[in-house]
């Protein structure tokens, strides 16, 4: 059984221009001890979905449908106190900018201490011991616990945020773009730490990112979102090497690869639809070089293949052939009349 199972989650934001369907068909599973990447571009709903798992959503957001089953219990519709009970102890969160995770006016060690004592019910001595242990675990010098967040480098802050997320040994850590703001070397070091700790502690991780190379480096499975919907999911290898949805194909082409001789990168023309008025049919159709009339009329369901590789595309059966075509940059220029 999965540790976390999200099914057909729909979240709307009330905006001046009407309701914005931030997440429409959010479906994903995270198994025990698994690292799952949630990939997509800005505005695709990945952060909304990830934050929803902690029960923390903006005031103008409403859950419209679906369920969030964690350890066999549907959390949706439960009182806030019940969510709050799970936070830190069962589910913890590493935000994108660790400046947000750490309060700038408190010493880093004291913030860790607070989590351990208030949430974990530890005594003073025990909390101090655990704080030191956590610092060492993520590669920080425990003596620096007396410093303030601004005295830490970006990488150190991110390490501190990871340490805090792991403080009470949760079953699931949700990390929102944990390395996006970091330099390549620091990024690699933080990812190595994350990967190492994950393997040692067996914690499940849901890693939200726009960067498929991060997914390739740390994730067992990947879920791809586009315009509020999950369009593809499967093992990292299946999704990145034999993508079945044209959007994923486009994404993998748009990334430069240092170990492959330079060809031409192919952008995906156009931009995501306005989620206040999502188009009929497949939401990617207007940018998709392979779209048929049917794609613009009917929404393709997320179909799961026997090997667990799921995709929401009417032409999934032709994926191998389309994937070959997608590798040719000229395929993507055909529709680029409305270049973004």
């Amino acid at each position: 059984m999965s540790l976390l199972s999200v099914r057909d989650l729909a979240i709307d934001y009330a905006t001046k221009g009407g309701s914005l369907h931030a997440v429409s068909r959010g479906t994903l599973e995270v198994g025990a001890g698994e690292v799952v990447g949630l990939v997509g571009e800005s505005g695709c709903g990945k952060t909304t979905l990830a934050r929803a798992l902690t029960g923390v959503v903006p005031r103008n957001a409403t859950f419209e449908a679906g369920e969030i089953v964690f350890e066999g219990r549907n959390l949706l519709g439960r009182p806030v106190s019940e969510w709050r009970d799970l936070l830190w102890r069962k589910i913890s969160f590493v935000p994108q900018s660790s400046m947000n995770a750490l309060d700038p006016v408190y010493r880093v060690g004291a913030q860790m201490d607070e989590v351990l004592r208030l949430r974990g019910g530890m005594g003073r001595a025990q909390a101090r011991e655990r704080t030191d242990e956590l610092f060492r675990m993520v590669g920080l010098d425990p003596r620096r616990g007396t410093e303030y967040p601004h005295q830490f480098s970006g990488g150190m802050r991110q390490r501190a945020a990871i340490a805090m997320a792991l403080a009470l040994q949760p079953a699931l850590v949700i990390a929102d773009e944990p390395v996006t703001a970091l330099d390549v070397i620091v990024q690699r070091q933080v990812l190595d730490t994350l990967r190492d700790l994950q393997a040692r502690l067996g914690v499940s991780v849901l890693l939200v990112t726009h960067d498929i190379s991060v997914v390739a480096y740390v994730c067992d499975r990947v879920v791809v979102m586009y315009a509020g919907e999950v369009v593809e999911s499967g093992t990292a290898r299946d999704v990145l090497e034999t993508p079945r949805h044209p959007y994923t194909m486009g994404l993998t082409n748009a990334f430069p690869d240092l170990e492959r001789a330079g060809g031409t990168l192919a952008p995906i023309a156009g931009g995501p639809p306005d989620l206040r008025h999502p188009p009929r049919g497949c939401r990617f159709a207007e940018r998709c070089p392979f779209a048929l009339a049917r794609c613009r009329a009917e929404t393709p369901p997320l179909v799961v293949a026997p090997n667990g590789h799921a995709s929401a595309c009417w032409r999934s059966d032709e994926a191998p052939a389309l994937s070959e075509l997608a590798k040719d940059p000229s395929t993507w220029t055909l529709t680029s009349t409305s270049a973004a």
Partner: peptide
């Protein structure tokens, strides 16, 4: 070290530790 750290958009084979 910079080159060793550049992320690759492919399911990684094992990568060498950073020479740092």
């Amino acid at each position: 070290a910079l080159i060793a750290a550049v992320p690759l958009p492919r399911v990684s084979q094992t990568r060498d530790p950073l020479p740092l």
